[in-house]
Design a protein around this nucleic acid. Structure first.
Lengths: 154, 154
DNA sequence: TCCTTGTTGCGAAGACTGTGCAACTAGGTA
DNA sequence: TACCTAGTTGCACAGTCTTCGCAACAAGGA
């Protein structure tokens, strides 16, 4: 399946169970496979941001033969569905999470520490960017860099 | 050379010519080599964000034997000096620019369009990040993702 | 049960970045 | 100026992360 989809926002509430995702998947011509079910279960069970590699390891605990490339392909499908998003945290691999769990990050460019940020912090920026530049901010996709308090002190 | 340096801010005005960078370099035990001079010339001549690959191509126009790995190593040294910074633009390779040329920008994650942003837009975010998370946002090392007006319309 | 077509495992390739090493050279010293 | 030391370079290769081609497999409708 590779049909173009409406943006996730246009479909109201995000699915909150694996079966709801599968319903969405089938509605788009996709299929409910064991590897997808396990991948989704893991994503629903965690709040953490996981790399493709970490997801593969977790999936393989329940079903050893699932290949890393299958993880990548499933993640791509789930992103097209709007169920999953990815985040670039600077150096290192991309991390994935349920779209419903997404949030912004600050990363210390000295020690690498990650700090999660509420969307509220971006409200003023988003409003001004929209008004002055016509730009709609998505603060979740790429982390913001700077210095944490510890590194600044040293 | 690989000495630890004070943060760039502690050294006052950033160098504004290649020779000033070289003075800084020598003060840290580094050497003024042709490949570094050319690399710096190119960085001083452009406002754009260039990838290591693009920089290598540009350097090689003036001195064909400079190797890509030399570019990477020189960029790393110049970053340690605080002369150069890099920015993660999400997908694709890291881009480099003079620290003095760095500016915040918005990037459309659909069409890739870059919109430069005044630091002023980030003031509120920076203040809240500092107060609530102890995090000092680097206003010159920020790429915010989202959608430009054109892509949002389509 | 059969058929169609979406999915998968596997291997390999690709993009980007870093590293080990021997040869070279910048720049200080005698 | 000649010499020496240690920083730098070219090159090849390795490593990490991600994507792709292809034949075999299987989900789910007919």
């Amino acid at each position: 399946m590779s049909k173009q989809l409406a943006p996730p926002d246009a479909r109201g509430e995000p699915p909150s169970t694996v079966d709801e995702v599968f319903a969405l998947l089938r509605a788009q011509g996709g299929r409910a496979t064991p590897s997808r079910r396990i991948l989704l279960e893991i994503l629903f069970e965690t709040d953490r941001h996981l790399t493709a590699e970490e997801l593969a390891t977790a999936v393989q605990k329940r079903s050893p033969d699932v290949h890393l490339s299958t993880i990548y392909r499933n993640l791509e499908e789930l992103q097209k569905l709007g169920v999953v998003t990815h985040t670039h945290l600077g150096h290192g691999p991309v991390t994935y999470q349920l779209a419903a769990h997404a949030h912004a990050h600050f990363i210390c460019e000295q020690c690498g520490k990650r700090v999660e940020a509420k969307d509220e912090l971006f409200r003023d920026l988003a409003r001004k960017a929209k008004r002055e530049l016509g730009f709609t901010v998505d603060p979740h996709h790429v982390a913001i860099f700077g210095r944490c308090s510890d590194c600044l002190a040293s």
